[in-house]
């Protein structure tokens, strides 16, 4: 076994994750390798320093209010979602009505009407193109089931 193989054993040894056979293997290596032995002592000291740290507990009031805060977030999330959906519907409807008014208004010049319709056609093509591209990449993404 090399020193590199023993690095992982060393961690497991420090954390009490080794079985008897692995412990014996590591101890045999440590008896021969002063460098690994020294490194283990340093890691022991580091572990003891880290184990001494205890995170401070918030006041009881924080835990009493915790659930209310989570519930408010969930409730507001639903509120925002409904408002956004309604906003999109209203914007689409309003846009449609506006275009309808302009197109059917005899006082608006034909040039402006044609320009508006061409712009809407262009926007629609762009939107469909982007959606088709997204859909294609999503279907062909080999890593889509991989947890990111």
């Amino acid at each position: 076994m090399t020193c590199r193989d023993n690095k992982d054993l060393m961690m497991a040894y420090l954390d009490g994750e080794l079985d008897d056979k692995q412990t014996k293997m590591l101890q045999e290596h440590l008896a021969q390798c002063t460098q690994c032995s020294k490194e283990l002592e340093e890691f022991k000291s580091l572990k003891s320093m880290t184990d001494n740290i205890v995170l401070s507990e918030p006041e009881d009031q924080v835990w009493q209010r915790y659930w209310d805060n989570v519930y408010n977030r969930v409730e507001r999330g639903i509120g925002w979602m409904l408002m956004s959906m309604a906003g999109v519907c209203l914007a689409v409807f309003g846009g449609f009505k506006m275009v309808e008014c302009i197109v059917t208004d005899p006082s608006v010049s034909l040039f402006l009407k044609v320009a508006l319709l061409v712009m809407i056609l262009g926007l629609s093509i762009l939107l469909i193109s982007i959606m088709r591209e997204r859909l294609y990449f999503w279907k062909h993404d080999r890593y889509r089931h991989v947890r990111r």
């Binding site: 320093m49 880290t50 001494n52 740290i53 205890v54 995170l55 401070s56 507990e57």
Partner: peptide
Amino acid sequence: DAIAERNETKDLVWKAI
């Protein structure tokens, strides 16, 4: 102040983490 019973060593380790 995220750690309890602070001292110089604990502060150093917490900062290093």
